[in-house]
Design a protein around this nucleic acid. Structure first.
Lengths: 237, 237
DNA sequence: AGCGGTCAAATTGTATACGATTATTTGCGC
DNA sequence: GCGCAAATAATCGTATACAATTTGACCGCT
């Protein structure tokens, strides 16, 4: 969630404890693909990196494990999650299941200023798409997710919002692992079409577009087992 | 999730670490209403109760906070969550949003043995309803939730399953706080009707029944305030 | 050389210790 | 007696220390 979306609807208390900051930092690194799936996250290393004790590092890693972004194996350590193809399918199945509902709820409550905010997100997104470079690619990934998260925020249901945050973050991991085309968000302006449908109050069409949008993202994945890297994951331990 | 449902579909690893055991114990206590909303859960007290250090107690409380069952306030402590009326509405809104989707998915994949398992759950449930006593009431609460959780398990999507576990647990909290009728699960045999509709492959009707079922639970709520008991009594010391 | 076992290094699991923050009680003046 | 301030107690936030487990390596044996 970027600061713009933050300013819109979130309900976070100002004072963040140390572990949360570390958690957010690592999460951003994972979502922006600066940390590859399978990377080992030793408690000591994390603690040293952020100049805190292992206690806080451990707490942050535990929190990320609840979100499904890192997997902790008993007495072995924490690793950036390496979602299996089946897990990937479940993530997108979950998105297909809940995003239409969120969309309807959001469309029913959306204000003109929120529509404007969405349009601004789209603008930023297309600007990033046209840019070159790794950093632009990373920002694009984040922006693409922020569209869905903002929609969830507009829906007014903080629980669904949190579910979506998890799903979007994990989707980023899946795309990093299995995406084939370099373009992470679909080439077309599907987000814009959805906003237009919302604006036109054509909810059925908006949901239809959303489902297709998710399907397009998933269609870009090559969900075949990849061995030679995560051997342990291949035998699912 | 009871042992019967466990045997069917869950994917739990045998060895559980200490904090998880404590987390589960406290969660059960909350869901079964042995711990009232608002009860203070001091890290030291929890640690002493389970004969572990504050470290593990803290980890368990953090985990429960992520599930929304306890709220931790900075430098003040952890408390059994006291969901606001608005939070309650969001919880049931979320359930209305996702349970129909889960139901459709489950109905598409359900096997005859799973249907039989569901029927057995219903039998157990109605047996508990006819019984008297506090323990029967608690078991009934759990059984009522297990129906929904089993459906989620049958759907085959572990992510949605986890979401449902959180929503069902929090629903129990809401009902404990705001429920007015002594009957926690609806008086009628709505669960049974849903299973019948699934068996008849009438998905639309099943979803309709599910939505009404959730609406009935929500209609039994009265948004007013109540307060707590004690920690030690809940764990019968 | 290949195989098996024992030991050492590294990492996690848990407990304890200390500082910081909040709640409570005490004591004083009014 | 009542209200307010300072001391006291309780609790949380974080760091460090120790125990348990795993992993990899070294060494002797077949």
């Amino acid at each position: 969630m970027n600061s713009a979306a933050n300013a819109l609807l979130t309900t976070d208390e100002p004072a963040e404890t140390g572990a949360q900051q570390i958690r957010d930092a690592i999460r951003d690194a994972i979502v922006e693909r600066r940390l590859s799936p399978g990377t080992k996250l030793s408690e000591s290393d994390v603690g040293n990196l952020f100049n805190v004790s292992r206690t806080l590092a451990r707490a942050a890693l535990q929190a990320l494990s609840y979100e499904g972004l890192v997997s902790v194996e008993k007495n072995r350590g924490a690793f950036v999650a390496y979602p299996s193809p089946d897990e990937a399918r479940q993530i997108f199945a979950a998105r297909r299941l809940i995003e239409p509902g969120i969309l309807r709820e959001a469309a029913a409550r959306i204000t003109t200023s929120e529509i404007q905010h969405l349009r601004q997100l789209l603008l930023e997104e297309s600007r990033l798409i046209s840019e070159r470079g790794q950093t632009a690619r990373r920002a694009e990934i984040k922006a693409s997710g922020d569209f869905h998260l903002t929609l969830a925020a507009i829906s007014g249901n903080t629980i669904m919002q949190r579910f979506m945050e998890e799903l979007v973050a994990r989707s980023s991991l899946v795309i990093a692992l299995y995406g084939q085309s370099t373009i992470s968000s679909c080439g077309h302006n599907e987000h814009g079409d959805i906003v237009s449908a919302i604006e036109a109050k054509d909810l059925d069409h908006a949901c239809h577009l959303m489902l297709h949008h998710i399907a397009h993202i998933e269609a870009d994945l090559d969900l075949r087992e990849r061995k030679g890297q995560g051997l342990k994951e291949a035998f699912d331990l």
